[in-house]
């Protein structure tokens, strides 16, 4: 015997708090605990509520803190305030020049009206946002505010703790930091510590793909990002691979990265990358697409990134020879 239920409806209206500082926001969250949620654009929360998640009694609106909306160089890193909207990320000229995959990821998330509200902080905090694979290959750091005041943690570590359930849920994300050395700079600078490799011009590459069940405004089935360099002698250097998608918490693939280091940029490397992802990409359950399909998709798409990089490198070399 069960009682009846009501659908798609919430009877109570939450209290909205407007803290001006991180300290105040964090204090409110500690005070109300599970009955409070940080809100930026509120776009993801909205869909969760529509799907039956309880609306908390207290919403902590982070939008009144202006300093969290800035993006720019800071302390040897490029910092993006957590309140920066995805639209702003998409059109930021410095991000476009230095971290193009973040721009591409921002472009692929939801629809324009949602990107005007949704923030990078919200996308990161969800633990499954489509910006994460791009941020991972750029080796992003996260600035948090919690009991000890401000602290910095690598995105990779935080996602690992999300995966094993040990991440603090009350911590407030202040900004995302990107190391300047991971920016899309001239590859000869990237490899300057090993001058022998810069004899021939090197080819840097960066690819991002979000695959869903349709072409836009769609939850991701698989999201991949790949960066790296092909040195003048045609060897892969510093390959960074990340993959996520759907409810799958994104992660780097250190085994693939290590095994590709120094390998010739050719078909065998493409196959190696494919084989490693087929073996190690573990998608979270999805009611619409099978695990096997998403595994293949991750492997195929990541391998196609590398294939493109090698292909472009090869064509570039041919071009040099003929001219």
């Amino acid at each position: 015997m069960q009682m009846s239920d009501a659908v798609g409806f919430s009877a109570s209206t939450p209290t909205v708090w407007r803290p001006r500082h991180a300290e105040e926001a964090y204090r409110l969250k500690k005070q109300f605990g599970h009955d409070a949620a940080y809100v930026s654009g509120g776009t993801l929360l909205r869909t969760q509520w529509e799907n039956g998640s309880p609306v908390p009694g207290h919403l902590i609106d982070l939008s009144s803190a202006a300093e969290w909306k800035e993006a720019g160089a800071d302390n040897g890193t490029f910092a993006i305030g957590a309140q920066t909207t995805l639209s702003a990320c998409r059109s930021d000229p410095q991000l476009q020049a230095l971290y193009p995959l973040i721009v591409e990821a921002s472009r692929s998330i939801a629809a324009p009206s949602i990107r005007n509200l949704a923030t990078i902080g919200g996308n990161v905090s969800s633990g499954v946002g489509d910006s994460l694979p791009a941020l991972l290959v750029y080796e992003a750091q996260l600035d948090w505010y919690d009991d000890g005041g401000e602290r910095t943690e690598s995105l990779e570590d935080w996602l690992r703790r999300m995966q094993d359930g040990t991440a603090q849920t009350d911590s407030l994300l202040l900004r995302v930091r990107l190391p300047l050395e991971s920016a899309n700079l001239d590859p000869s600078e990237n490899l300057s510590e090993n001058p022998s490799l810069t004899a021939d011009p090197a080819h840097s590459f960066a690819y991002y793909a979000k695959i869903g069940r349709r072409d836009s405004f769609v939850p991701s089935a698989v999201t991949t990002a790949l960066t790296g360099t092909i040195d003048g002698s045609g060897r892969l250097r510093r390959v960074r691979l990340a993959a996520g998608g759907g409810k799958t918490i994104p992660r780097r693939y250190p085994e693939a990265e290590a095994r590709l280091e120094g390998k010739a940029a050719d078909d065998r490397s493409v196959h190696l990358l494919h084989a490693i992802l087929m073996a190690s990409y573990t998608p979270a359950p999805d009611p619409f697409l099978s695990d096997e399909y998403r595994k293949r998709t991750a492997a195929n798409v990541a391998a196609s990134h590398l294939w493109r990089a090698i292909s472009e490198f090869a064509h570039g070399k041919e071009g040099e020879r003929c001219c």
């Binding site: 940029a265 078909d267 196959h271 494919h274 195929n300 294939w307 090869a314």
Partner: peptide
């Protein structure tokens, strides 16, 4: 889409030899 997906579509076309 799983019906039409190839297992390793890239391998059929040589990029370059080693």
């Amino acid at each position: 889409p799983a019906l039409l997906q190839e297992v390793m579509p890239i391998g059929q076309w040589a990029v370059m030899s080693d």
